[in-house]
């Protein structure tokens, strides 16, 4: 239990309108063999701590109902939450925006000592690519080797997409998730539409 001061950052429908950084563009783009879509308004939490600390791992498990991925470049997910390994002491947690405060509170409830949980929901948005030609779009967009032989299901890496940074994830066989910075969302979207 920590005494960190936190508050619910989710926009409340009748008071403030939450807006995707791509609100001015179409939220989906379909061409032959590729579907590009935005998944707006998700919750994003940056988690930092010591992966060798058993109490830390147990606390995360209790708060999120998921094991902490300690293997480099792995993604663990349940129906509601996913945890992506970012570095030996840093993880990205993605959840529905409306439940973000609940998970953020649960983490502070379960963790103690030297750790950090920061709500970075305002800083990112998620794009998804699916379809038979999704891989061709990625080949044109990133230097990372996304061939299925090298990039299996459940893998997630931080790399570059058209020179912008991206968290590239493969949650299942047929879908790619691209988490981009909100300030680069317009650029990444237009790049991908161009490649599609």
């Amino acid at each position: 239990m920590s005494d960190a001061a936190i508050f619910d950052q989710q926009a409340v429908a009748d008071k403030v309108t939450g807006q995707s950084p791509l609100h001015h563009l179409s939220s989906s783009h379909k061409t032959e063999g590729v579907v590009l879509e935005e998944v707006p308004s998700l919750g994003y939490l940056t988690l930092r701590g010591d992966a060798n600390d058993e109490a830390f791992r147990a606390g995360v498990h209790k708060a999120l109902g998921l094991e902490l991925p300690v293997q480099p470049m792995t993604l663990l997910q349940s129906d509601t939450v996913s945890i992506q390994w970012l570095s030996p002491d840093e993880w990205m947690i993605v959840c529905p925006g409306a439940r973000c405060f609940e998970f953020e509170s649960a983490l502070h409830e379960q963790l103690s000592g030297h750790y950090a949980v920061v709500n970075v929901s305002g800083g990112y948005t998620m794009l998804t690519l699916s379809g038979d030609r999704a891989l061709d779009v990625l080949y044109q967009s990133t230097a990372y080797d996304v061939h299925p032989r090298h990039f299996g299901t459940g893998k997630a890496v931080a790399t570059t997409l058209a020179k912008a940074t991206v968290f590239l994830r493969r949650p299942d066989d047929g879908k790619w998730e691209l988490i981009v910075r909100r300030s680069f969302a317009d650029y990444c979207w237009r790049w991908l539409v161009g490649v599609c």
Partner: peptide, 18 residues
């Protein structure tokens, strides 16, 4: 392509990431 091995990620990555 010029690849550099990151000892934390445990694999070779493109130079532009460094």
């Amino acid at each position: 392509m010029f690849l550099i091995y990151c000892p934390y990620c445990g694999e070779e990555r493109e130079e532009s990431e460094f």
